[in-house]
Design a protein around this nucleic acid. Structure first.
Length: 595
RNA sequence: CGGGGUGUAGCGCAGUUGGCAGCGCACCGCGUUUGGGACGCGGGGGUCGGCGGUUCAAGUCCGCCCACCCCGACCA
């Protein structure tokens, strides 16, 4: 590609809305342009990156038996009604009507589309297992897109769906994906770890997320350096340490004005926060016999800990949780800020598993400005449910080896999920087994966000001058810079020949043949960030050479003219090999021990 | 949806007390220049986010709306 013909331009300054560094460089270098909040055009340079990533995705998916197909972006509402998600998914799903007023949706994921295909095609156990995938546009009307390509509304996703006759088959395909995903990220040069994640209520047994550790990430991960335990905070377990039990003491009401928070209370009574009980009110959407209803829930935690809403939702098998409104709390007879489960009825009480092991806690008295001392679970109140409700924090004990956990932020660039038969059953995806029995297809789903991956790569690979994407995903391999003034056409002529020779040798070349000053050309080369730069100028030609430079290094070396092509090829091969070795796949660190 | 911020040329920004809409970069033409974002001369480009109001006069004051960014809620 000649830069004189390139569609995009580099920008000297990034637009003000480009906040994160990697994204600002993607914009300045001309890889992407934003059109609206969370909606982007991918320019030719970015498109080449995307195509390289997609080639890697196809390669690795095909290697584990994947068959590529293509499912529509616009889907009929009927199939979403069949699974119920037409009703349960909110406004993040874009809905539209066709000219005949039929309901349509923009696909935010493709389980329903897969279900519809599978029930038409799969009849026999002889047609299983199968693995299908596509690389397709998704639209999710996210309430808050942010950070450039990291969180968007329209995006391209590789999603694959495994179809098996039983759970053993699913397990095999799940593991195959687990390995394939590490291969993919390694080939792209993105360091990731796998963490255990929430399976929600879709009946899935197991789910992992592939995380790029970076402060820009929106997920908090808890990691153990000594045994490799790794989990999203939503599901992270940890070793809880009960305080030593004390002899039970008499309930005692104390006047505690202005102590609406645990901190105030502990300070006022001169006790530690772990000697208090905290009541958190949540309204849960529950399902019973297919009937949906709302219920006020009081979650009781030790005062020094925090509620993990995902754990609570899972413990309750709730569809949904939201903070309770003040009027709902008051209607239950509790007083916000001074609430307690003692002598309270009509509320679903869920206590953290630490509470039965904690004695003589201070809890609310359900009366403004009063608390109760020496509240004890079992004696003074009971619960509908005892469960792990506490959010793990940095420094908490690893649930496997008790070493202190570390907390880090991460971006979810991929996930793998054992769906089971939830969708098959909802949509009638069945097959006959060897015995003639009709059984539901066991499914798994596996996603990688392509644009988000590019966003992460830009964060991982840049410096002040610009991008420096790994050779496997860089839009071109060689940036050929021709310098030269009006007095001599010699450098440009030679560069033209070299351009042809490099391409003839199979290399991907971006040729800066513009009539720009050297500074402009070098700065653009740094900004676009191709791994290899070759400069031809009258100065280099004088001593029969060209100048060779790697983006990741500062030294420039002269190269005899006749060796330029061979040297560039071998350097690119070396960079590819080095990239593959740089990112180590360590199953233990990756969380493979979890299953 | 709540809180905060910003909208002036393609990008970055200035615009005072309400009084001719500007600067740098980018772009076009001519010439000079060519190893780290060159220089000279000449040019083109504006619904000052939109609508309404106040005023002799609005980029500037008032009201409503919209878009974008950040924080939170949210995230199949």
């Amino acid at each position: 590609m000649r830069m004189s013909l390139l569609f995009s331009q580099t920008l000297r300054e990034a637009p003000a809305e480009a906040q994160s560094e990697g994204y600002a460089h993607l914009v300045r270098a001309g890889y992407v342009r934003q059109m609206a909040t969370g909606i982007f055009s991918i320019l030719p340079l970015g498109k080449r990156v995307q195509q390289k990533i997609e080639a890697i995705l196809r390669d690795e998916m095909n290697a584990i038996g994947g068959q590529e197909l293509s499912m529509p972006v616009v889907l009929p509402a009927e199939i979403w009604k069949e699974t119920g998600r037409w009703y349960s998914v909110g406004s993040e799903m874009a809905r539209l009507k066709d000219r005949n007023q039929r309901d349509l949706v923009l696909a935010m994921t493709h389980e329903e589309a897969v279900g519809d295909l599978v029930r038409r095609e799969i009849r026999s156990h002889r047609q299983l297992p199968r693995l299908i995938y596509h690389i397709q546009t998704k639209f999710r009307d996210d309430p808050r897109p942010r950070a450039g390509l990291i969180r968007v509304r329209e995006f391209t996703m590789k999603d694959s769906y495994s179809l098996d006759a039983g759970w053993e088959g699913l397990e095999r395909q799940y593991r195959a994906h687990y390995q394939a995903y590490f291969n993919i990220f390694r080939r792209c040069g993105l360091p990731v770890i796998a963490v255990a994640s929430d399976t929600g209520m879709m009946g899935g047994k197991l789910s992992h997320e592939f995380m790029f550790l970076h402060p820009i990430g929106e997920d908090t991960l808890l990691l153990c350096a000594s045994c490799g335990y790794a989990a999203n905070r939503q599901v992270a377990r940890f070793g809880k340490q009960p305080e030593p039990a004390q002899p039970l003491m008499e309930l005692e009401k104390v006047h505690t004005p202005q102590t609406k928070t645990i901190q105030d209370l502990a300070h006022f009574l001169r006790i530690a926060e772990h000697q208090t009980a905290k009541a958190v009110f949540i309204t849960a959407r529950l399902v019973d016999n297919g009937e949906e209803y709302e219920r006020l829930v009081m979650a009781i935690l030790r005062g020094d800990t925090e509620l993990n809403e995902t754990k609570l939702a899972n413990a309750l098998k709730a569809r949904d949780l939201r903070p309770a409104r003040e009027d709902e709390i008051l209607a239950s007879g509790a007083v916000p800020g001074f609430a307690s489960p003692v002598d309270l009825s009509g509320v679903l009480v869920v206590v953290d598993e630490l509470i039965p092991h904690s004695t003589n806690l201070v809890a609310g008295a359900n009366e403004a400005d009063y608390h109760l001392r020496n509240v004890n679970y079992g004696r003074d109140y009971t619960a509908n449910l005892v469960a792990d409700l506490t959010a793990a924090r940095a420094g908490d004990a690893c649930p496997q080896c008790a070493a202190p956990l570390r907390a880090e932020r991460g971006v979810e660039v991929g996930n793998i999920f054992q769906l089971g038969s939830w969708y098959s059953q909802a949509m009638g995806c069945t097959f006959q087994d060897e015995d003639g029995q009709v059984r539901p297809v066991i499914m798994g789903s596996y996603g990688i966000g392509v644009g988000r991956l590019i966003g992460c790569l830009a964060e991982a690979y840049h410096d002040e001058q610009g991008l420096k994407l790994p050779v496997s995903v860089a839009p071109f391999q060689v940036h050929l810079v021709a310098l030269g003034g009006k007095h001599s056409s010699q450098p440009l002529d030679y560069a033209e020949r070299l351009y042809n020779d490099l391409q003839a040798a199979g290399l991907e070349v971006l040729f800066d043949d513009r009539a720009e000053s050297p500074g402009v050309k070098f700065n653009d080369a740094d900004l676009i960030g191709l791994p290899v730069r070759i400069t031809v100028s009258s100065r280099t030609l004088e001593n029969g050479s060209v100048e060779f430079k790697l983006r990741e290094q500062t030294d420039r070396t002269p190269l005899p003219l006749d060796q330029a092509v061979v040297h560039a090829s071998s350097e690119i091969n070396r960079l590819l090999a080095e990239l593959y070795n740089r990112i180590k796949f360590d199953p233990a660190l990756a969380g493979f021990l979890d299953f």
